[in-house]
Design a protein around this nucleic acid. Structure first.
Lengths: 279, 279
DNA sequence: CCCAAGATAGAATATATGTTCCATTTTCTA
DNA sequence: TAGAAAATGGAACATATATTCTATCTTGGG
């Protein structure tokens, strides 16, 4: 961080302030003081508001941002907004600074996937009520066997749960369409069906959900939002939203949820052992 | 919270959505879906941006907000802004206090899973050389079809990759043992085999790896450590270690890696397509 | 004390914003 | 199928925004 470089994060921005602050005209120092004190709130303040709250002219804030190497007030605000949402700078912008650090486009893409996976999990952690997972586990354990239905991407989740529950000696009827062999799409009252589907929801899974419900089976859903056709039908609906990177979703948070559900089921089925040993 | 009341927080807002969602016109449901997915990011999106990202007309967003009892888009955004300013402590801090307060076991278990998933992804991010992913993608794309082998838990990863690559119109031979139908365990020179296995490595997968190698096929592996029998045999070995919670592993990092690999392959197969834009 | 160079505040401007309105399309009803 | 009702997208609008410009003020050196 030197005197000339353009800050790309709030941290760099604040560092640069402390470097150049003595060379700044008085009013711009006032701006610096105000901005530093406001901190995160800067993400929301318009120049007009900042001006009113501080008694400093709007134009001073723009000169201030420019003195820091930024284009203007909006540009500065972007730094604060990115920090608030923990986003990284836009792709186009970063691609310019690649070479300097000896990075490639592949690096960016990979880091983006990791970041968005982490963001999804953090969001899951704050939004999900663990009690719902318990409720789901409770229902699933109330019957000796479980239907698991998931298609496309969701099939990998279905497979995972089917396998792990199998390790717990719980019977799982994994609905596949191998050879188009029909798996009964009628259910008995009291049976438990675990349905997994994300947007775009496959109509088949929705149909199964409706049938299960009307047959009096219990329905547990893993889906994305309360708007999902599954969530309305389910007795317990576990919702997990995956952030996307350029329209492509990762399934890290979903598998995190699946693991938590699996273990919750495992402890119920065999509260002594299973979970301990290296599953 | 009833149908008529005006939401005063994001929570109430989301609750109201799930109450009235079925009575909403289709486009407004699209809005609901978009808003629920975007979550905290809604604090900063302008209607124009939201419109562009979602492909929904700006006016629809305003009608949507009004349908929820709010005055307009700005009014709705205020809810998200207020939530954002209620400075939530960073997640690591939250975890520690959760642990200390000794919430219910369910809470702890869930939080631990999320925490260890994140730790695994962070580790992956620092240890993995993205160039290896590129190399793997390069090899996989060099042939018109790909063998994918994975058993037990790893099968879900295999399924995921098989599905996604299928979406890219790449041929995938997914090795399953449905009906014990034999999938040729001999390979032609130049064929590409993707093997996925983690400790404890199934002997069968190791055998396939050895056969593939001796037949002159190219081998790409997704495994856990350089000590894995696969990594020695593979032309490219992608290694991902998952932390464990009481002996139970999550697969978040693995799926993060899988997604990165898939997209890397996707861009190669169709550089003009979906994946590029807006990353 | 004067004058140049810089800093400042507020008016002027261009841009982008949220919202309203209306013609067109879609959906429902009879 | 025809007619009514609702929904939709885009143009039009008023407003608020960040930024630029300029006349005025401040500062510091000779």
């Amino acid at each position: 961080m030197n005197e000339a470089s353009i800050p790309t994060s709030v941290t760099e921005f604040e560092k640069k302030i402390s470097i150049i602050k003595d060379g700044l005209p008085k009013r711009l120092q006032d701006c610096a003081s105000f901005v530093l004190r406001k901190g995160d709130a800067m993400a929301f303040l318009t120049v007009a508001q900042a001006s009113q709250e501080s008694g400093i002219a709007p134009s001073a804030f723009i000169r201030f941002a420019q003195a820091l190497g930024l284009q203007g007030y909006s540009d500065m605000q972007q730094l604060f907004r990115r920090q608030a949402t923990q986003q990284r700078p836009p792709y186009r912008y970063r691609i310019n600074t690649l070479r300097q650090r000896g990075e490639t486009e592949a690096d960016l893409l990979f880091v983006d996937f990791c970041d968005s996976s982490i963001a999804s999990i953090e969001r899951l952690m704050t939004k999900m009520d663990p009690q719902l997972i318990e409720n789901a586990a409770e229902i699933i354990c109330s019957k000796p066997y479980l239907h698991v239905v998931g298609q496309r991407r969701a099939f990998s989740v279905a497979c995972y749960l089917a396998y792990v529950l199998g390790q717990f000696d719980h019977r799982v009827i994994l609905h596949t369409d191998v050879g188009s062999i029909k798996i009964p799409n009628t259910f008995n009252p009291g049976e438990v069906v675990l349905l997994i589907s994300f947007e775009p929801y496959t109509s088949e899974v929705v149909l199964v959900a409706e049938k299960a419900k009307s047959d009096g089976a219990q329905v547990v859903a893993i889906t994305d939002t309360p708007l999902s056709p599954l969530s309305g039908l389910a007795d317990v609906s576990l919702e997990v939203v995956e952030e996307d990177v350029g329209g492509f979703r990762t399934y890290s948070a979903t598998f995190c949820l699946a693991a938590a559900l699996a273990v919750s089921i495992g402890t119920r089925l065999n509260s002594a052992s299973v979970v301990k040993e290296n599953i």
